[in-house]
């Protein structure tokens, strides 16, 4: 148990002493997972909205695929992205393996179904008569979509939290496509795994603690936005 306290103490020391390697690990975690979440929002929200509002053949199949994707194992995503990005792979020409970009790609693939699924579910749970009403008021199709998204902003923020939470705490894919290279692709989760392997448990706990605080801070910020807009 004293290991845990030693670890938390070490976490504070890393943060206060301005350990550049540790800060770089923290910033990279935020940037990689933040970018992956943002890109998945840009694509997942329109895709989810479209899936929720349109009726076409094969929609059921697509929805099932999205729902399956919401539980896709990160390590499998990592493996597939690795194979694609290998020098001998189809995207090898880009030379992206073992770079932060590869990690963004893998995390984007993990977050996209989550964001799409949450968006789809939140629009579908709206009262269908609301759609009719908006149309009846003479709104164009785009105006209607915008109003529906406004109505669902609370569950949409939950989508952001779910997507971000999933990717920042993910380790299998980041390890595989990033390689856990110091100052380049080492993020909080891969650093934790590495320190456990080295038997540096206090440092592993320190990284784990920082990760949890980080996730808490981001989520409390989003929750603040969410709850404020609820009372408005």
């Amino acid at each position: 148990m004293e290991l845990v306290f030693e670890g938390i103490g070490q976490a504070f020391w890393l943060l206060v002493s301005g350990d550049t390697a540790a800060w770089r690990v923290i910033l990279l975690s935020l940037m990689v997972s933040g970018s992956a979440t943002l890109i998945s929002l840009c694509i997942g929200v329109p895709a989810g909205t479209w899936l929720a509002l349109s009726r076409f053949r094969g929609r059921q199949v697509l929805v099932s695929l999205v729902n399956t994707g919401m539980g896709s194992p990160p390590v499998v995503v990592g493996l597939i992205v690795t194979i694609l990005l290998w020098r001998s792979g189809p995207l090898g020409i880009l030379g992206l393996l073992y770079t932060p970009y590869a990690m963004v790609i893998a995390q984007f693939i993990i977050a996209l179904p989550l964001v799409t699924g949450f968006t789809m579910a939140s629009i579908q749970q709206l009262d269908p008569s609301l759609r009719l009403q908006i149309m009846a008021l003479g709104a164009s199709r785009w105006q209607m979509v915008w109003l529906l998204l406004r109505e669902t902003r609370l569950p949409l923020l939950a989508a952001v939290m779910a997507g971000f939470g999933a990717v920042i705490s993910e380790v299998g894919a980041s390890m595989m496509v990033g390689g856990n290279i110091l100052n380049q692709t080492r993020v909080l989760t891969t650093a934790t795994v590495m320190e456990v392997g080295k038997g540096n448990f206090p440092l592993a706990i320190a990284f784990g603690f920082i990760l949890m605080v980080l996730v808490y801070l981001v989520n409390s910020l989003l929750t603040h936005v969410q709850q404020r807009s609820r009372t408005r």
């Binding site: 770089r24 990279l28 943002l38 100052n183």
Partner: peptide, 17 residues
């Protein structure tokens, strides 16, 4: 704003490398 933040985040991504 989203596009801007996104662009910044991606640009920032290259700096650690």
């Amino acid at each position: 704003a989203t596009v801007l933040v996104l662009a910044l985040a991606i640009a920032g991504c290259s700096s650690p490398a």
